[in-house]
Design a protein around this nucleic acid. Structure first.
Lengths: 245, 245
DNA sequence: CGGTCACTTGATCGTCTTCAATACCAGTGG
DNA sequence: CCACTGGTATTGAAGACGATCAAGTGACCG
């Protein structure tokens, strides 16, 4: 049903000078909590890695040895049932932090959608770092809280919204946090496939495609290409998304 | 569709002596992170409150002024759509911590299912407390991480499992963390109604009822009363729950 | 007892899925 | 340049699972 491919590639050995100080994703991530004066300590435990599209770099059930911080590209997190049914629990872009887990194993898998760059941090080393930077711990709590709120929204979507409302919600979300394309402000790229969208929204590929087409013919959106969307009627779409229609 | 009733009742004024030191729920909660020597500081900001069945004590959208810690009873957390569709995001029992939110408003509502007792803590006061007890911050992060894992499981359930599998998952979960009844070890109480279960599993009352009946006639479970379940075949039910059947 | 409320059971309906065919697009080689 | 190929997306027709509508049952309580 789903056979991942290549392996992640380490770009910089751990401790390479200034990899954190010059990191363009730092300001958007939890690494921001470490002050400039101590940034070398963070760099000392960071391993910069690249993953080609389709690469699985976190495997559900594996022992949770590392934290991850995305610095480029888009990632899908998912859980699977033994017979191949897949639920994507979220997409992560630049600045996102991955790997929070209670137990000693990962609760989900993570794959690169496009070309992804991320930093790996050993959990043990991060723990010692956290003791010195309580601000970092606060940031992690904020991250977890944010994810929790998003997860609750997604439960409402999966449990109670119609296919139409799910697509509307998804498009509004992407338009807020997605990559903006040249031209219209309301136009953005969808790095993920229809299959990914379906598995994120608890639908099938066919229903996603059909519903998008319908939203297009009704004038809510435009679909310049399969991986681009422009929102024509943001207000109406938002109403759809929140069940006001 | 759903009209909450009474108001919570404050039992002890804030700062009553020893309310935390003698709290029977303390060992099961984040309050455990405050050492005995400083427990008075915690007690000083705790407001013990009782809520009758059906009472809404957190309202989605209200400004998030407090944290909550359940010391007796069972609570349902939920989100609603404007037309009354409801998604229950979880149930909380003794020791559970509520109120994590990023923004300044609650992201969900919470209601007492049975008679509930909880402690209210002002967020501002908790924040100052956290600075002195980093262990508490770590506990909160652990709580948030645990909830996140549970939320991911629930997304898989809502997005990809059949009604049968949802009920099996729910019953296995309740059998693990629910109130054990006298007699058989596999027998437990369901404090929530069929409507609550339906809104938790993304189903209707009718489907919940029908599916439970079917699981009973097939020998997976017994239903001594509407609010009690005994699991006859835990292995088979677990297989159902995880999609192995 | 009569009334209410929650739960159960039955019959029909609709949304989304499944199965299947077709269209499209990028890359490759004749 | 264009046929060929593999993958992804779209469209169509039939089917199924759970929802909806409706009636019936049982428990609790005044």
């Amino acid at each position: 049903m789903y056979t991942p491919s290549t392996r992640p590639v380490v770009l910089d050995p751990r401790g390479a000078a200034n990899i954190c100080a010059n990191c363009e994703a730092r300001s958007q991530s939890v690494c921001d909590a470490v002050p400039d004066s101590d940034i070398a300590r963070l760099a000392a435990i960071a391993v910069v890695t690249r993953a080609e599209p389709g690469t699985t770099f976190i495997q559900e059930g594996d022992s949770a040895t590392h934290f991850f911080n995305i610095s480029a590209g888009t990632v899908r997190m998912y859980k699977m049932l033994p017979d191949g049914r897949r639920q994507i629990t979220g997409f992560s872009g630049v600045g996102h932090f991955l790997g929070l887990a209670v137990s000693d194993t990962y609760a989900f898998s993570a794959e690169a959608i496009d070309r992804v760059r991320f930093c790996k941090f050993s959990r043990a080393r991060v723990r010692t770092l956290l003791d010195d930077f309580p601000a970092m711990e606060k940031r992690l709590l904020a991250v977890a809280s944010t994810e929790l709120v998003a997860a609750q929204d997604q439960m409402l979507l999966l449990g109670r919204k119609t296919a139409r409302e799910r697509l509307a919600s998804f498009l509004m979300l992407q338009s807020r946090q997605g990559t903006i394309c040249q031209g219209s402000r309301s136009r953005f790229a969808l790095p993920m496939s229809r299959g990914d969208i379906a598995d994120y929204l608890g639908l099938t590929i066919e229903t996603v495609s059909r519903t998008l087409t319908k939203l297009r013919t009704e004038g809510f959106i435009e679909i310049p290409s399969a991986s681009e969307i422009a929102i024509r009627a943001p207000g109406a779409l938002e109403n759809l998304a929140t069940g006001m229609a």
